[in-house]
Design a protein around this nucleic acid. Structure first.
Lengths: 241, 241
DNA sequence: TTAATAGTGTCTATAAGACATTATATG
DNA sequence: CATATAATGTCTTATAGACACTATTAA
């Protein structure tokens, strides 16, 4: 047996987990899905809220993304969300049980597509409204840091990609799209400029039908490439000096 | 002992590794640092070239980034490069020894700062010139995929951030900066537009001294915030339709 | 006809792209 | 003075931002 293989097996292995930051918009506000930690005596952070996640099951999960998708489906019932890797966090102190490394994904869903599934009690999973860079209180482990990173990524990418579109159902009007951008960006978005931007970026195509209400009906659109976000050639609101 | 803790310990753990994609510019060409796999019988991918990396040592490495920095210093002697997380890759098939997950970082260095340190032979570590999305031949594990992702990230970020600046030493002229951007982007960059872009982005400040040659001497500059790259408000060459 | 929202048009400011011109060093 | 490169200026084009205006439905 080679020295290298031998030494690899001698290494104590860090624990490997996967966590998922799940965003949606409820009542014109960004929300994130959190689950409550169990309250057993030897549990870390008992009763605190945390990002959904857990250990990689090397029998069940064929890769990290499959593991993230599994946890997402388990909690929300959603099977094909927008999902991207956020990063990984690993050190000796984040979990009292020892050296752990977590691979974090973030998902964006339309609220209409979700059906929450709690483990035992309906009260141990819930949506929390985002304020600034978190939910207003500390989370278990280093999840406050991870959540802040995810929020920054979502807001940052909203400046130059079509990411917020994944917060809407399959078909939507341009006004709805504009509105969800303004929710994520936290500031008003000009209608005319937004429409030019979206249409010239080839982001959407017309869908059948219109959204009718107490005013002029609005054309429905759908994403042209729902698999990947579109990159705009510029950010919103170029900075002035 | 709680059910959760018990089950966590029962889980077979994936192997955890860290790999580093190290870029530099040599003779006006992008290069990446690779190491040769050992040739023992039970070694995976014996004799093939791979990204530098290895197991996380939970005694020595306080976190994942420290582990990446350690591996970088070990190979190049460089202690404070530009380093960012690229992503993680984990599944049951990438390493014949079992389920592994690797946390990948990418580093950007000025070639002048490097002193290669090989393990035993000077021939088992080397710089490879980049062509398109790789080095022209397959790498060990899934490192060809990882390298392609890193190249895309570097080229992509060169369109709207100051990343290529980290390929230069502390002080440089604007012409040198322009040139290294053109090397990374793989296309010529207009002098006047580039200078306006760089100066109005507040990216650099004047350093003492000039670079003299057989023509008008050039003012030396340095990065204003060497810790973080600067984001430009637009990409280069907005696409035409 | 009015209210409400969809959708378009106009004007301005900003910055990139292309390329010409001026500036300043060495040999 | 010739040459090479640094540094700046000019003109055009593209697009965002602001905001005014027109279009189309339901009540």
């Amino acid at each position: 047996m080679s020295k290298n293989l031998h030494s690899s097996q001698a290494f104590p292995r860090p624990l490997t987990t996967v966590d998922v930051v799940i965003f949606t918009v409820i009542d014109d506000q960004l929300h994130v899905l959190l689950v409550k930690r169990p309250t057993g005596d030897s549990e870390p952070y008992p009763g605190m809220w945390a990002l959904p996640g857990g250990y990689v099951d090397i029998e069940r999960d064929k890769d990290l993304e499959a593991c993230a998708l599994h946890k997402l489906k388990e909690k929300t019932g959603v099977v094909s969300p927008y999902l991207e890797q956020l990063g990984s966090w690993g050190n000796a102190r984040r979990d009292p049980r020892g050296w752990t490394a977590t691979h974090v994904y973030f998902a964006i869903l339309p609220y209409e597509s979700v059906e929450l599934h709690s483990g035992s009690h309906a009260t141990d999973i819930d949506w929390f409204q985002l304020k600034d860079d978190g939910v207003g209180h500390e989370l278990a482990f280093d999840h406050s840091t991870i959540l802040a990173t995810a929020i920054a990524r979502l807001r940052g990418k909203a400046e130059y990609t079509s990411l917020p579109a994944y917060l809407l159902p399959d078909t939507f009007t341009l006004s709805e799209l504009q509105h969800v951008f303004s929710v994520v960006l936290g500031r008003p978005v000009d209608k005319s400029g937004f429409r030019t931007r979206v249409l010239s970026a080839n982001l959407v195509e017309e869908a059948d039908g219109v959204r009718s209400g107490y005013s002029r009906p609005a054309q429905l659109y759908r994403l042209k490439t729902p698999q990947n976000p579109t990159y705009f050639p510029r950010t919103f609101n170029p900075r002035k000096d």
